[in-house]
């Protein structure tokens, strides 16, 4: 099941050229671009690992693409996302975030139902891949 988080996730994966164009747009707005990776695909997982520090004061997307390619070399079997942070007053938040790398196989999520008091139902989603320990989830 293809993970859909962040922008563009219902489109086919962006090519590197398309990613670079998005990065250039972010840089032209003065946003700091950041790379993160994880192998826990749960939508509520906010603890992605940072790949180095956010990149400030870049003029050209080539610098970000260089880091992305290095990140892929090591964590190419995981999810990598790119986000652009706007530090200007009043925004001070992420303006753009999208997945730039995903595992080859994405087994998806299981829906667990728990029958509780009365006729109440509690639902929880569990990523099949998260059954394995961190770092071994996608055959890496």
């Amino acid at each position: 099941m293809r993970l859909t988080q962040g922008c563009f996730s219902f489109l086919p994966d962006l090519t590197d050229e398309q990613i670079a164009a998005q990065v250039q747009y972010a840089l032209s707005k003065g946003w700091a671009v950041n790379l993160e990776f994880t192998d826990d695909p749960h939508p509520r997982n906010t603890y992605w690992e940072m790949w180095g520090l956010p990149m400030f004061d870049l003029q050209d997307a080539a610098g970000v693409m260089m880091e992305l390619n290095e990140c892929r070399k090591i964590y190419g079997d995981r999810y990598i996302r790119l986000s652009a942070f706007d530090s200007s007053h009043g925004w001070e938040s992420v303006r753009l975030s999208f997945i730039v790398n995903r595992p080859k196989d994405e087994p998806g999520f299981r829906l667990d139902r728990q029958e509780s008091d009365g006729r109440n139902m509690r639902y929880t989603t569990r990523a099949y891949s998260a059954d394995k320990p961190e770092g071994r989830r996608y055959g890496g």
Partner: peptide
Amino acid sequence: APKTKEVLKKAMGG
């Protein structure tokens, strides 16, 4: 390495 790369990234495109 990170220091050099940081500078290189800033210089890219120029």
